[in-house]
Structures are given as structure tokens and as C-alpha cells.
Nucleic acid binder design. Structure first.
Lengths: 238, 238
DNA sequence: GCGCCGCTTCGGGGCCGGGCGAAGGACAGC
DNA sequence: GCTGTCCTTCGCCCGGCCCCGAAGCGGCGC
């Protein structure tokens, strides 16, 4: 019966308020230092260090030292997907208030390194509906038409293919539908941010660990994504 | 910062080995008594009672008394979806052995009350690909063609619509793609089981809490689902 | 109605885990 | 080199949780 034990120890890593605050802060996709995470969690440096050691040990967080700083990120998009699912259930099962982060959070946000919210679901539906992606073992693969279209959009397909998974689903808790994760999801989000089709909404850093995940679609972004993928009709204005 | 706290307390409910064993056992969709769950978890009756009280309090488990027995089930398909996601990550992050439940578990299984595994993903792809489902807020809705086709298959659409959600995605951890949950997913699974298109693979009850989730597609089931939805070419033999 | 059975509540014991302060390495800049 | 900063390790205290045995409550069958 190895599975329930592994299941429980994984859940235990998320079951501490301080670690939960760190993990939700890391869902923004940014790499944060141990000190920043300590502040987010509201604990001292020693406690934060111990927590982060456990998260790294458990495979949820990856660390890469840089000088005297140690930057921490989520270990993979699969971790982000699970955190999102848990967060959605926490919001549904304890509906204290319907997600205190407002409409902007539901309309467009980052799930670690890829798009989520109504925008993420619409991009997923556009890619599949136009026949740019086809079902494959372990997720999706790009059709010839899809390769051409994605390249025309400026997506770096070679970079996307270097990820452990090229394209796979990720549950969107606010829409109850899948959005796109994997290397392709990451490259699409990176492209949209680099071209200023999407802007990160600046949130007050301290306090709310998930403020920096919110995104706003610019007019040019709406035009380009609408032409290419039929994304539109969404109430994506902040 | 209400969210990380709710997140943590939800994870804490899953973070105990005994509770994890109970929850994974309930993923079979069966309603189990407190005594059975105590045996599954390997603890005494008093401890099990306390654990179940916490799970009910936390909204993960629903209880309906029947005589001197108290039957427990997962509270919703959303709970099942989250448990599956967590289980998949636990298998991926601690790849002690690649899921000790064999190929049958990946090919067809129950996720609480709906189909999962390669079969579940194929059914989802068939429904969407044939234009029987169309995107809708919070999930999917049935197209006119879909209503006709589903009714011809013998699916009880009226019952499906009574669920809190008609149709929505649920992450399939083994395929990294979405399968279908919600009222429609439940009715499809119920129909397949009632017509003996699918059989529950009997597992030794004690010991492995997830053995009874495995399913086997019968020849007639393969024929009917293949004709209606194009499901085929899967290695679904046990 | 009496006794069995399933489940819950109560009390006590034990363990694990989280928090801090103080001290110890590692790196950058002057 | 020295100093400041970032981070970790160590030692300690504390609270919470998990377990069991014993007792209490309620339904069911003889």
C-alpha cells in the first residue's frame, strides 16, 4: 500500500499555513528568494529555511543559488496544476467568499508558467478547435497546420519541444475546463508577455501572495489572438 | 490572506495516512461504512470515527446513515478530481515505482462516479470531436446533435442535468488530458456499467484501497462505444 | 425485552512538528 | 582582510494531533 502513504506525505507538504503561503506565492511563476518567501509566510528566516528544505526534498520546489541568494521556484507545471486544483477545491468547499481576488483573477492569470482563466481556456479551445493540436499519448501534439500557425504567431516550437511534455491539459478551477500546460503552454505565455499582448497587473507585493498572477489583455493582444485563434467575446478588460 | 489558510486546512485533511487511505478507497465511488474504512486505514474504530468526523466537517465526505450503519461517500466529483490530481503528482514526484496498479489501472478506471484512464479520455475526445458537446461557461453543454446521440445511446440526460454541473473537465493524471465529469460523466459511466459494457474488476477487498476502481471493457462495450463515439484502437483488454 | 453489534464520546499517553534565539558558514563589496 | 547580508544549523520549548482502552448510545434480531 505504498500509494496512500505517498499521497499523505505529499499533502502534508501543503498542509502547513506557512508552506501553503509560499507555494501559492510561487504560482505566479516568479523565482523568489528564501527571505522573500519568509516574509510572504510571515515567519522568521530559520523556520522558512526548514520549510523550503522540506519542499525541495519533497520535489515540489526547485532551488538554484545565485550568489548569496537562493532562488526558489515550483519544480514543474504538474506541481502548479495540482496546486491550482487544490486551491479551487478550497474555494469551493469553504466558500467563505467567492474567491477574494475579483473578476480579473478569473478572466486571465498565470498558472505558474502558462495561461489560465477564461483566456487560457479560450486559447486551449481555439488551438484544438482549429485543428492545430491533435490528441497524443500523454497530451497533445501539433498538426502540420498547427506548426505553421504557431510559428507565424512567433511561438518558439523548438523551445517548446525541449520541455518534458510538449503540451498537456491542466485543470482550470474557475472555468472547470482544461487549459494548456507543458512546453507549448509556457512558450505561448512567454510570447504574449514579451510582445506586450498581456501585462502583469502589479499588485502590492506583501500581503497577498497571489496578486501578481493576474494578467490584463491589451487591445493589441486581443486583436492578434482573436485573428489567430478566434479568441474573443471575452470580458477580458481589467 | 484567507486563501492560503483555507488551502492549508484542506490539505491537512488529506495529510494523514489513515485519512488518505480512506479517501483513496472512496475514489471507487462506493459508499463504505465507518467500520470498513477503519479496516482499510488499519486503525481502530474510535480513531476512524474521529477522522471521518473531520472529513465530513471539512466538506470532503458526505455521510448518510442507514439503520445502524453509516455510509460514507466523497462529497462531490470536484473532490474526486482533486484527489486524482494529487495522487498523480504523488506518483510522479515520488516515482518509487511507476504506479503499482498495473496497466489495467491506466487503461480504464473509475474516478468516483465517472470514467477515467485511456477510455475516459477517449470518450471525452469522441464527444467533443463529434460536435456533441460545445464549450459553455463552467464546462460543456450538449448540442442538439449531441442530445440525440446521447439519448440513442441510452444516456439519461434528464438525470444528468439535475447534477450541480452538467459536464465539466476532470484532469486525468495518467493521460495528462481531460476526461469528462459532472452529471453527464456520471450517467455515461452508470449506463456503461448497467449494460455490462464495462465490468468492475474484483480486487481483494482488504489491503489495496484502490483495486476496485479498475474496469474492463467487454467486447460488446467496445463495439457500442466504437460505433457511437469512435472509441477504439485502445489497448483496453485487461 | 434482552443482548449483540456498529458507532461515538471521553480520558490519558505519546509523538511529531513548528516556532524562535543564538551561533556558524558562504558570498559580495569596500 | 573586514564587514554586512543572506541563509543555514543547532538546541530548546510548546502546542496539536493521533492512537488506544473504556464507557455510553442507538438500532436490530432473537
Amino acid at each position: 500500500m505504498t500509494t496512500p502513504a505517498a499521497f499523505a506525505s505529499l499533502a502534508a507538504l501543503m498542509a502547513d499555513p506557512a508552506r501553503a503561503a509560499m507555494l501559492t506565492a510561487l504560482l505566479s511563476g516568479e523565482a523568489l528568494t528564501a527571505g522573500e518567501l519568509a516574509r510572504v509566510a510571515g515567519i522568521g528566516a530559520p523556520a522558512a529555511s526548514a520549510h523550503l528544505a522540506r519542499l525541495v526534498e519533497g520535489g515540489l520546489v526547485a532551488v538554484h543559488p545565485q550568489g548569496r541568494h537562493r532562488y526558489h521556484r515550483l519544480a514543474s507545471a504538474a506541481v502548479a496544476a495540482t496546486l491550482e486544483a487544490l486551491g479551487g477545491l478550497a474555494g469551493a468547499v469553504a466558500p467563505a467568499r467567492r474567491w477574494p481576488h475579483g473578476e480579473a483573477f478569473r478572466s486571465a492569470r498565470l498558472c505558474y508558467d502558462h495561461l489560465a482563466g477564461r483566456l487560457g481556456v479560450a486559447v486551449h479551445a481555439g488551438l484544438v478547435g482549429r485543428g492545430w493540436l491533435s490528441p497524443a499519448a500523454g497530451g497533445w501534439s501539433a498538426t502540420p497546420r498547427g506548426e505553421a500557425g504557431l510559428a507565424a504567431l512567433g511561438i518558439d516550437l523548438a523551445a517548446a519541444r525541449q520541455a518534458r511534455r510538449f503540451a498537456c491539459d491542466c485543470m482550470d478551477w474557475s472555468e472547470r475546463r482544461a487549459h494548456l500546460a507543458g512546453g507549448l503552454g509556457r512558450e505561448i505565455a512567454a510570447c504574449c508577455l514579451a510582445r506586450h499582448w498581456l501585462l502583469r497587473l502589479p499588485g502590492e507585493r506583501e500581503g497577498d501572495p497571489m496578486a501578481r498572477r493576474r494578467l490584463r489583455l491589451t487591445p493589441e493582444g486581443a486583436r492578434c489572438l482573436g485573428e489567430a485563434l478566434g479568441v474573443g467575446g471575452l470580458d477580458l478588460a481589467a
